[in-house]
Design a protein around this nucleic acid. Structure first.
Lengths: 209, 209
DNA sequence: AAGCATATCTTGCCGTTGACAAGATGTGCC
DNA sequence: GGCACATCTTGTCAACGGCAAGATATGCTT
C-alpha cells in the first residue's frame, strides 16, 4: 500500500475484491471460487488467502465495502423518496455487494468492521425517516415508518435483481421504485425532482447454471 | 413410488428433498452438499444424481415444491392483509424453500415445472389484490397495488430471515408484518382477526461459517 | 414360472476447490 | 549489509460435483 505498485503485484487486495464483484455479478455468490479470482488477477491460487484468510473473509471485506458504499449512496438523496430510490439504485448497480450484504451465511456478520459499517448505513436511513412528517393512522411512529420504508425498497430491489417481477414493471428500476415508494407514503413524501439522472441499467440477465 | 417402500430405499426423492431443506436451514444454500444429503439419507454419494441429475436439478425440485407450498399458504388468508401475513409466515417457516425460490443462480428458473408453479402462486396474489378497493392518490391501479404489496412483504420477510432487523422489531414476525402492511394500505385493508394462530417461530439464529 | 427390460442404487474415478504448511522473494528499517 | 516482515509461490490433502460402469431389485410379458 505504499504507492502505485506497493509490492509484487500491487494492490492485490483491491484487485481481488473488484474481481470478486465481477464474478458474483456474472454467476452469483454460490459459484464464487477463490482460485478463479487468483487466475483473473494473475497470481497463484493461494495468494488470496494471505489477504482475506478464507472465503468468508473475502466476502466479509466485500460486505464492509458494500455497507460503506450504501451509506454514501443514501446520503446523496435529500428526501426520503429519493433515498429510497437511491437504495434500489445501489442494489441494482452494485448488485454483487448487495447480494452478499444480506446473506449472513456467506460471511462473518459479527465482525467489528461489519457491525460498524452496517451501523453507519443504518444511521443514514434513520435520519431521513426522522424528517418525515407524522402520518395519519400509522401507529408505531418513526420506527414503524423506517421499517416499512426499508421493507418496501429492500423487497422491490431484491425482486428486481432476482428477475422475479413481471415485464409490466418496466425497464427503469428508479422510476418503478419511485412509484412503489409513493404508494407507501403518499402525500407525506415530497415529490422532488422526477427526472432520471442516468440511463437505466440493464435488467438482471443472469441465467442459472 | 408403488407403496410405502417403493424401492430399495423407499421414497428417496422425498427424503432427499426434506434433508435438503433441513441442511439449508442449518447452514444456508451455499454450503449444501449432495454427498452430505446422501449420508443423511443413508445412501451412496451418487444416489441423488439419479433423481435430480445434478445440484441445480435438486434445487429446482425444491423451488417447485416451494412455489406450490406458497400458493397453498396464501390461499388460507382471506383478506389481502392476512395474505401478506401468510407470505411472511411462509418465508419464516419454510425458510429453506423461500431462500432458494428467489435465487435464480441456484436452479433452473426456466424449467416448465417452475414456470407453472410460480404462475400458480402469482395468480393467488393477484386475485386478492383485485378485491382491494381502489385507493386515493395511487396511480397505477391494481398492478401498482400488487407490486407494492409484494415488495413490502417480500422485503420484510427477507430482512427478517437475514437477521438484519433491529431488536425493536419484536419476536413475532406475523405481528410485525401486520403492522407494516397496515402502514401501506391503511384503512383500505380490513382489520380482520388480529389473534395469532400459533406460537411465533424462533428468530433466525444462523451463524456464518 | 421364467426371463427380459428397466428403475434404482453402488462403486470407482477424475478434475476442481478450499484450506493448510513450508518455502521463496521482495521491501523497509536499523 | 543484514535483519524482520509482508507478500506471494509451490506442494499437498480431504471433500465435492459429476460421470461411467456395474450391481441389484422390481414389474411386465410371455
Amino acid at each position: 500500500m505504499t504507492g502505485v505498485r506497493g509490492y509484487h503485484h500491487g494492490d492485490l487486495r483491491r484487485v481481488l475484491l473488484a474481481a470478486a464483484a465481477v464474478a458474483i455479478e456474472e454467476s452469483g455468490p454460490a459459484a464464487l471460487s477463490l482460485r478463479d479470482l487468483a487466475r483473473r488477477a494473475g497470481v497463484s491460487h493461494a495468494a488470496p488467502a494471505h489477504h482475506f484468510g478464507d472465503k468468508p473473509g473475502l466476502l466479509t471485506a466485500l460486505a464492509v465495502e458494500g455497507f460503506d458504499l450504501l451509506a454514501a449512496a443514501l446520503q446523496t438523496g435529500d428526501s426520503l423518496l429519493e433515498m429510497g430510490v437511491a437504495y434500489v439504485d445501489f442494489a441494482v448497480r452494485r448488485r454483487a455487494h448487495f447480494e452478499v450484504m444480506y446473506r449472513p451465511d456467506l460471511y462473518r456478520v459479527d465482525a467489528p468492521e461489519v457491525v460498524a459499517a452496517r451501523g453507519r448505513s443504518r444511521a443514514v436511513l434513520r435520519s431521513a425517516v426522522a424528517d418525515l412528517p407524522p402520518g395519519p393512522g400509522a401507529a408505531g411512529g418513526a420506527a414503524g415508518d423506517a421499517l416499512a420504508a426499508w421493507s418496501i425498497v429492500h423487497g422491490f430491489a431484491t425482486l428486481w435483481n432476482a428477475g422475479a417481477l413481471p415485464d409490466e414493471a418496466g425497464d427503469d428500476p428508479r422510476e418503478a421504485a419511485r412509484a412503489v415508494i409513493r404508494r407507501l407514503f403518499g402525500s407525506r413524501v415530497s415529490d422532488g425532482d422526477v427526472r432520471g439522472r442516468a440511463a437505466p441499467p440493464a435488467r438482471s440477465p443472469r441465467t442459472p447454471a
